[in-house]
Design a protein around this nucleic acid. Structure first.
Lengths: 221, 221
DNA sequence: AGAATAGTGTCTGTCAGACAGTATCGC
DNA sequence: GCGATACTGTCTGACAGACACTATTCT
């Protein structure tokens, strides 16, 4: 215990990194290699380093870069968690971020040498989690769902070109319940966030039109 | 400059404390008594003190208690502001809170011995503000407006017993535009957040029914 | 032809804005 | 009665859920 603890809190950033795999919403968990809470599963996170980071959001990007070598398309602050008891090392602040990963980057994650990675079911991760990360995950999930329920489109989770059915499946996976196809498409018909392309996906059935994100698109802006 | 600055950021809490005076939305500003930014107007705020504060929200309550001796009914985290340049003392984090003040407590504010207080127009405070507080105010105001636009009732700004017209005027002051009376009341007709009382306000016209907040009421919950 | 998926049309209920109307007070 | 404010009724258009329908491909 260093004396500065009573003057300065520990400041960490944690990231709930979401993606959709097989129509199920997943969140990235890492198994901690160091004490405290060694071997427990946790959201990827790390200490703020003022000498390296331009802001808390930059710190979150650095953590993701270091742990999984990934640049996420969307990163958004959710809220903070603070107090003397949430981390045994002392009075601490965790700033929670919510991030969306492009589907085609899921396999680009680099497995850190010491930590195990897992894409856990976001609604039921199946591990007892470190610190207050179970609460953090619940909070980030609620924020993500609220945004999608409020008609934000999770385009940052999809490949650059995608079909409306893919988009609908992604929204359904996030929300956890099915959506009506007709209503879903009607809502998107005149959205400036979607641009109709002149390309189609061919499969074992009727071809589906491809779309891309509109130019000024932002998930929450 | 102490060397710990490169390891630990300064952590402060700032509070945008809103109320409605004369049908206009106001925010509490204080004039700084100390450097840096001495004599500039700012949102009330202060350093986090881990030895005193149970959490960042508790720190915000302590700051309000110390600066204006007031216990606010609603206090909600908005987001953080961070970086090396926002405060000349070094790399810093400000955690912004949004608070609502009961109308009948407006005059209960204690003027701190060194700082001047002012209830400034929230949309146009009329001062050049310290640090990034102009941006903070704008952000807190946007959050408040978004909540009220999403049908949250700012009952924490009203006295314990109030009329529907008072409530509507308060919402209008927050949003900055008039609301339709019929639609407003229709929406509240079956709300569990409002309880009809058996009392009326008598004036120079038809008496108005009084209401109080429902038992489990929370501005954003 | 039939399976499978893409995409559309229509009915209906809910809800909000607009606005006119009625009710009840003081003077 | 008149002014003022409280409160209500009704019309209408926007929109979302439900669900049946058509369209186009592959096998």
């Amino acid at each position: 215990m260093v004396p500065s603890e009573t003057l300065f809190p520990l400041v960490t950033v944690d990231v709930a990194l979401f993606t959709v795999i097989d129509d199920s919403l997943r969140v990235l968990l890492v198994q901690r290699a160091l004490e405290p809470e060694r071997r427990r599963w946790a959201l990827p996170g790390g200490m703020l380093k003022p000498a390296l980071d331009g802001s808390l959001e930059a710190a979150a990007r650095r953590v993701l870069q270091r742990k999984v070598s990934v640049d996420v398309a969307h990163l958004e602050e959710v809220c903070t968690f603070s107090g003397a008891d949430r981390d045994p090392r002392g009075w601490s602040i965790a700033v929670l971020f919510c991030a969306l990963l492009q589907k085609d980057q899921v396999n680009a994650l680099v497995r850190d040498k010491v930590e195990a990675l897992e894409w856990a079911d976001a609604t039921n991760p199946g591990h007892r989690m470190a610190f207050d990360h179970a609460l953090q995950l619940q909070t980030a999930l609620a924020r993500l769902r609220a945004r999608v329920a409020a008609k934000a489109l999770p385009l940052h989770m999809l490949p650059e070109r995608f079909t409306l059915t893919q988009l609908q499946r992604t929204c359904e996976a996030i929300l956890g319940h099915p959506l009506d196809k007709s209503a879903f498409r009607r809502r998107l018909k005149d959205s400036p966030d979607l641009v109709e392309l002149d390309e189609f996906v061919r499969g074992a059935q009727r071809p589906a039109q491809l779309y891309r994100a509109g130019d000024g698109f932002s998930f929450s802006g």
